[in-house]
Simulated scan of single mutants.
Amino acid sequence: MSVEKNRPPEGPGDPDRPTEHDDLGTTGEGDRWQEPPESTARRSLREERPLETDIRDKVTIEPAAKEIARHADRRALQGDGTHYVRGVRDEDLPYYVDGVLERLVPNVETKYAQGKAAYWDPDKQALVIENGDSGSVFTPRNGKDYFDDL
Results as ranks from 00 to 15, higher is better:
S39R: 11
A41N: 08
A41I: 08
R42L: 12
R43K: 13
R43G: 03
R43A: 07
S44L: 11
S44K: 14
S44M: 08
L45G: 11
L45V: 14
R46K: 12
E47D: 11
E48I: 05
P50F: 00
E52L: 06
T53C: 04
T53A: 08
D54V: 00
I55L: 11
I55S: 03
D57F: 00
K58A: 12
K58T: 09
E62V: 09
P63R: 01
A64T: 15
E67H: 09
H71Y: 15
A72M: 01
D73S: 05
D73M: 05
R75D: 00
R75S: 02
A76G: 02
L77P: 00
Q78T: 06
Q78L: 14
G81L: 10
G81A: 13
T82V: 01
H83E: 11
Y84P: 01
R86A: 13
G87H: 02
G87D: 14
R89T: 06
R89C: 00
D92A: 15
D92I: 08
L93T: 08
L93S: 03
L93M: 09
P94Q: 02
P94G: 10
Y95E: 03
Y96V: 01
Y96S: 02
V97F: 00
V100F: 14
L101F: 00
E102L: 07
R103A: 15
R103M: 03
V105E: 14
P106Q: 06
N107V: 03
V108L: 13
E109P: 12
T110I: 11
K111I: 06
K111S: 13
A113C: 02
Q114L: 13
Q114R: 15
Q114D: 15
G115K: 12
A118K: 13
A118R: 15
W120A: 09
W120G: 09
W120E: 13
D121Q: 14
D121H: 10
D121M: 12
P122K: 14
D123A: 14
K124L: 10
Q125V: 08
Q125C: 05
Q125L: 07
A126G: 09
A126T: 09
V128L: 07
I129F: 05
I129L: 13
E130S: 12
E130Y: 03
N131M: 09
G132M: 09
G132K: 04
D133A: 13
S134E: 10
S136Y: 02
S136K: 06
V137E: 12
F138I: 08
P140F: 01
R141F: 08
R141H: 12
N142D: 15
N142E: 09
G143W: 06
G143D: 03
K144Q: 13
K144D: 08
K144G: 03
D145S: 15
Y146V: 00
Y146T: 05
F147C: 02
F147I: 03
D148A: 09
D149E: 15
